[in-house]
């Protein structure tokens, strides 16, 4: 069943990809293939393979989803990663990374104090490495930039 679900998703995405490829048109076609035929070819190939997967699903068609407290950390982790991007934009690298790495430490089973120490060392060390040694800039706070 799971292979069929995967096959269905791939079929849908392949059709979408192929239909998008049809829109790439040139006024003067200077070469036999052009920009659209190769993606269309890939789309057709993918459609055939996804149909094969739907009709002949594999024998190892089992997926273990552990719906335990640990597994619930996965969506939390993903959401937190997106929030980290937002935080980087708002508060700049050091503060955002300190907060985020502390939070990750907690997700992976540490205490708040230990995580905070580790996060502080990590964020400052990386900042110094990039800014002082490599002379690269890391995200700065949007708010501070505005106030400047």
């Amino acid at each position: 069943m799971k292979d069929r679900v995967a096959g269905g998703i791939i079929l849908f995405l392949s059709i979408f990809y192929g239909l998008t490829a049809f829109r790439f048109k040139l006024e003067y076609l200077v070469e036999p293939l052009g920009p659209s035929k190769y993606p269309i070819l890939l789309s057709l190939f993918s459609i055939i393979l996804s149909l094969y997967l739907i009709i002949f699903p594999g024998k190892l068609d089992i997926i273990k989803w552990k719906l335990t407290a640990i597994d619930r950390r996965i969506p939390i982790f993903i959401v937190s990663l997106f929030l980290y991007i937002f935080l980087l934009w708002i508060s700049g690298y050091i503060i955002a990374t300190f907060i985020y790495i502390t939070f990750l430490g907690l997700i992976f089973g540490s205490t708040f104090f230990k995580s905070a120490i580790m996060a502080m060392i990590f964020s400052i060390a990386i900042y110094l490495f990039f800014v002082s040694l490599l002379k690269l800039h890391l995200p700065t706070s949007y708010i501070i930039d505005m106030l400047k």
Binding site: L81, Y84, T97, Y100, I101, L104, G105, F108, G109, S110, K114, S115, M118, A119, F122, S123, I126, F130, L136, L138, P139
Partner: peptide
């Protein structure tokens, strides 16, 4: 080295590597 040190470091370095 416990996972609570290793994993956040991997995530942190991954993000910064991609950003740069």
């Amino acid at each position: 080295v416990p996972k609570w040190i290793l994993m956040p470091i991997i995530v942190g370095i991954s993000c910064i590597a991609v950003y740069t």
